[in-house]
Amino acid sequence: MSSANYIGRLAPSPTGLLHLGHAATFWTAYQRALEHHGTLLLRNEDLDPHRSKPEYVDAMIEDLAWLGIEWTPPILVQSQRLALYREAFARLLASGFAYPCTCSRRDLAQMVQAPHEEADDEPVYNGHCRPLVEASSTVIEPGVNYRFRVPDGETIRFTDRNLGPQNFIAGLDVGDFLIWRKDGLPSYQLACVVDDDSSRITEVVRGADLLKSTARQILLQRALNMQSPAHFHTHLLRDDRGVRLAKRYDALAIRSLRQQGLTAAEVLQLAARSLLQYE
């Protein structure tokens, strides 16, 4: 890849304070962009209307700047791009890749075929609502979830620039996944591929908990005739019990560490030391 063509991105969601794990991943993304003399963009993934808060947007911008991470403006805001997501969803629906799903949360909990893994955000769907024959449609039913029909048995392969070759089998490792929500908003998977494509992202740097999401997004990119970027998945930071850090760990939030008197360099050193034990 030509260094001049490198475009990376930071994509936090404003549903809580950024923590030490975010510092490690976002600093890696920043360093990758610097190494390639490329561009780094910032995307505000604010598509959760119940959990996204303006104060978290302000905090994440301030904390990233405090760490010394620089990006190229303007900040892309997902809630302002709904027309783009809807257009991509309509294309999937018209091509027969999407179908409506009326399963409730309770239904989904009862029909899980495999244990819900810590490093995955969506268990394999058992196909309860999947039509026997692919059918195209131009009608979007209101108040209904939609899923992407994966090509059962197909192996999705990609070589991660940090973790090496990755293989996932459609229908076994990743099932038909949510792409459009009944509240009229896109899923993370769909919004992510649309934004990465429109921003011409060449490399995605994010945590290893999203490896299966990468497989799902590659399938979406193929269906939408989009190029897939390269990927660099970072190891996850974990607590003393081996549980990966989440936004509920307020004591390890960047804001909390700042208030304790740590400098940006000390926070980054702490994150780097924590990562070493998993590499």
Rank of each mutant, 00 (worst) to 15 (best):
V144N: 01
A98V: 12
K53F: 03
I61T: 11
I218W: 09
A265D: 15
A33W: 07
E266I: 02
P49L: 02
D250L: 13
T39D: 06
G21E: 11
W66V: 11
L236A: 04
E87G: 00
D63G: 02
V57F: 12
G242P: 04
P12K: 10
A272E: 15
I201F: 08
R9A: 10
E134D: 14
R32L: 12
R200V: 05
W71H: 05
R258S: 12
E118G: 00
A23L: 11
R147E: 04
R51S: 02
G242T: 04
P115G: 01
K212A: 06
S199Q: 15
S137Q: 10
E87T: 13
S3E: 13
A265H: 12
S79I: 04
N44L: 15
D63E: 14
H231A: 01
Q259A: 14
V144T: 08
G127K: 11
N145W: 11
G8F: 08
N162M: 07
P49Q: 03
P123S: 06
Q269Y: 00
G242D: 06
P12C: 09
L270C: 03
F168R: 13
A271M: 09
I75P: 08
Q80E: 15
P12W: 07
A98H: 11
L76G: 00
A223Q: 07
A230P: 00
F177Y: 13
D183G: 01
A272M: 06
A11R: 10
L18S: 09
L219N: 01
L190W: 09
A215C: 10
L236C: 07
I140L: 14
L276C: 00
T159R: 13
S104F: 01
Y278S: 01
L270Y: 08
C129M: 09
G68K: 12
P165N: 05
N167G: 00
R181F: 01
L276K: 12
T25H: 04
T102L: 09
A253C: 08
C129Q: 08
T234F: 00
W71A: 05
Y188A: 08
E203H: 06
L93N: 12
H36S: 15
A271H: 10
K212D: 02
L262F: 14
S187T: 05
Q166M: 11
I254F: 05
L64Y: 06
I61L: 15
P54H: 07
L76W: 07
L40A: 02
R81H: 10
Y99K: 06
M1F: 06
P229K: 08
W180R: 12
L220E: 09
E35H: 11
L178W: 11
W66Y: 10
Q260E: 14
D239R: 09
V112N: 10
Q221I: 03
L163H: 05
L163S: 02
E55W: 10
A90V: 00
E70P: 00
H235Y: 01
P54C: 08
D197L: 00
V204M: 05
V204I: 12
H22V: 04
V124K: 09
N44S: 06
D160Y: 03
I140V: 15
A119I: 03
V112H: 09
F89Y: 07
V112M: 13
T155G: 00
S52P: 00
M111D: 07
N225L: 10
H36R: 15
E141C: 01
D250K: 14
R255Q: 14
L67D: 12
R241C: 00
A59W: 05
L108Q: 09
L252T: 11
R255V: 05
D239N: 14
